[in-house]
Simulated assay, not measured.
Amino acid sequence: MFLPMRLLFLAYPQAVHSAGLEYAGHLALTLGVPLHLTAFIDPHGAELASQTGAESPDMARERVMAQRHQWLKSESIRLQAKGVEVHPDVICSSAVECAAYAQRVEADLIIKDMQARPGLSALDWELLSASPVSVLFVRPGPIQTCGKFLVAVDMAFQSKAEDNGNHSIIEVARHLANACGAALHLISVYDSGTSSHGDLALFDARKQAFDALASQHGIASEHRHFIPGAPANAIRFYLQRSAYDLLVIGAANHHLLASDIGLTAEGILEGAGCSVLAIKLPAGAQSPKAVEEARQLEPDLIRS
């Protein structure tokens, strides 16, 4: 099970005091873990390109890096005054190489600001796809850490034979919720669009499995949300009419999960309306064997 011990905040594309940086500092202090504060400068980005008219590329890069170092120094002093252990660094490298950098510093969690518009940018999706570790995208605006966390699980792939990731996702979310003093809620969508008319038995079986999973993790009945619909739309609409501070979903290493929540993750995240934690799961979390065993399990659940 993943528990964050080293946090990495990516100050990209701008090096400014932001909601993401504030969140990263709060989380590092709450968990009692170090924070790597890193400013990336894209050597082929617009920032350096705009500077090269009056000076050489090397001079422009050195000047921008000096500005980043000064910014990191001031932010580090501010965070250290609060008791956060900070490790500042400036990297002149392509932003898509952030994932490799996270491995080098042995980070367990990457924290990055979302763009001003709803959802994730193309860069965010590239980072999420390439990152070997979990990624927390922080929504712009006032930071709310002691509120409500929503965990999305996919009961279509729930299996008694092996953990498909649902248990790990819930445990990580619970660890963070307890540390932040947040209430933990659980949601799953019964995909009514892929089932034939009258599949009440299958719906009841999935709902029964969902309640069993929630009970196993001590989630109160009023914090359980099992709803029908198209997964992406149902979760997005639910988030829009509810006040949650963090959505927690699973993502397999190097690609999104081959499940309803995974395949429709982009649709969910484009309108999530809150911060999002994408937890990277082992590559075998949704193995064909697990999927087949889960499907074979459903008739037994229906007959019971």
Rank of each mutant, 00 (worst) to 15 (best):
A243S: 06
A252W: 01
C92A: 14
E266C: 00
I235Q: 03
A161D: 10
A46I: 10
P132G: 01
A201Y: 09
R61M: 13
S50C: 03
Q144H: 05
I227C: 02
I91N: 04
H254S: 14
W71I: 03
Q115N: 08
A116G: 04
L48T: 08
E85R: 14
A11M: 10
D211S: 06
S94P: 06
A156T: 00
A100S: 09
Q70N: 08
A252H: 04
L128C: 11
I227H: 02
G273P: 03
L128V: 02
D245T: 05
L150A: 13
V133L: 06
A66S: 14
A11G: 05
C92V: 15
L200Q: 05
D245A: 09
A212V: 03
C146V: 00
G25L: 02
H44V: 00
P34M: 12
T52S: 10
R68A: 13
Y23P: 04
F237S: 15
R63N: 14
G273K: 03
N164A: 01
R206Q: 04
D154R: 08
D154A: 11
S168K: 10
G147E: 07
R139N: 04
M114V: 07
F9H: 10
T30C: 01
H255V: 07
G218Y: 12
M59L: 14
L35Y: 06
A285V: 03
E47N: 07
H254M: 06
P43N: 15
V133Q: 14
M155A: 06
R224A: 03
V64I: 12
K112H: 06
G218K: 13
E171F: 02
F157R: 09
L72C: 08
G273D: 06
N164E: 12
S94E: 15
V291F: 13
G262R: 04
L184T: 01
L3P: 01
A232C: 02
L184Y: 10
G271N: 14
A173D: 00
H223L: 04
H44N: 08
S93V: 02
V276G: 13
Y238F: 15
G32V: 04
K82E: 11
E292A: 12
H197T: 07
I261P: 04
S74Q: 15
P142I: 05
V90T: 13
L37D: 13
A99C: 04
V172L: 14
V33T: 13
G273A: 01
L21R: 07
S192E: 15
